[in-house]
Amino acid sequence: MSRTLYTLRIPSSTRYLQTVRRFVERHARAAGLSEEAIERLKLAVDEACTNIIKHAYKGRSDRPIDVAVLLEPDRFIVRIRDQGESFDPTRYRAPDLRTLIRKRQGGGLGVRLIRQLMDEVTYRSRGPYNEVQLIKYLTPSDTALPPSASA
């Protein structure tokens, strides 16, 4: 079965995080996902793009981030591509909240949060591209509206 696909390209600046959240929210709602699933997807895409801006592009604000939403029969996927430094998820260790507070540090929780929010997360590097896929499985409560019946 073919995928429904929408794409958005933003520059790597935090000022566009709101734009990305609105984009994902609009398409997740049109696909009939529950409000809880929509909130989870918005937060996960925000965290993933924030990490790309800070780490893959080291704060440069003029590099491209390509976001795509794909609707498959059993899942809603947000695919995010960048051309910065790649992230190795096998080397990530979720930091302990108490340790961060003692060190007066606020960062490092985004990857942990993404994993908690999504049903599946995949990372891969292909040539100059890094790609992360944020995957939310569709449940019967998500499919109240058929995709064709909405915007």
Binding site: E47, L97, G107
Partner: peptide, 17 residues
């Protein structure tokens, strides 16, 4: 209406002080 880990990070960075 909304918070991401960047917002939570601000509380984490200041509460000890």
């Amino acid at each position: 209406d909304y918070i991401s880990s960047a917002g939570l990070g601000v509380f984490m960075a200041y509460v000890e002080e």
